[in-house]
Amino acid sequence: MAYCYKCGVELERGAPACPLCGASVPTDCVEPETPARPAYPNFVHDPEYGDDLSGPERRRIALEILSLALGLAAAASVVIDLADGGLAWSRFVAAAVLGVWGVCAGVIALWKRPGWAAAAAASACSAAMVGIDAAGGWRGWSLAVGLPMAAAVALGSFAVGASVRKSKRRGLNVAGHSLIAVAASLCILELALDLYADGRIFLRWSLITAASIVPVSLLFYYMHARLLRGADLRKFFRL
């Protein structure tokens, strides 16, 4: 009969270690001829596991639902517009719906590759803006403002995603990274708008916004590093 020399409790026949303190049982105390059968199975079996869908299955179903919902919305717009006398406003709706579909489908299909997903979303978004611009009589804003903005958002998302992946503890530092990315994107947006409208760069509101946002992100970094000691957000808010 084996006892734990630390806890003083009796152990199951053949137990290699004490379940309370982890202290190993000296080999001469283990009875290898008649080891006790484990009290619990060494596998997890719960009814819901059988019902679980795999990741690709979930993504395929999500893509189907998304395509059906957006397709119906676009078709309904076109039909109503046609009944109203011809294709007018529904061209904008169709281009916007295609853009939304492209962004979502890119993210769903490339879920495991965030870099590629961000690039696909930016491309779909840019294509949608070009489509809307063309539907409205081509003024060129989609190339001058839309493309830089989509690229800035994609790069910002990619940078945040990469930094989150690298960080050991993900908490308020994620909010800090996101705010910095938003500030940078706004600066790029104003830069593109200035170039498109006046042909010269004079940053105003984006710098004011950045000056407001950056201290908040610094506060988040401080809270993450010092006050919450890197607490996980899900645990912090008991999600």
């Binding site: 734990c4 009796e10 152990l11 199951e12 137990a15 982890g22 619990y40």
Partner: peptide, 11 residues
């Protein structure tokens, strides 16, 4: 006291 557990301890 005789002890058994479903998983080994993590301390």
């Amino acid at each position: 006291v005789k002890v058994e557990s479903n998983i080994p301890p993590r301390r």
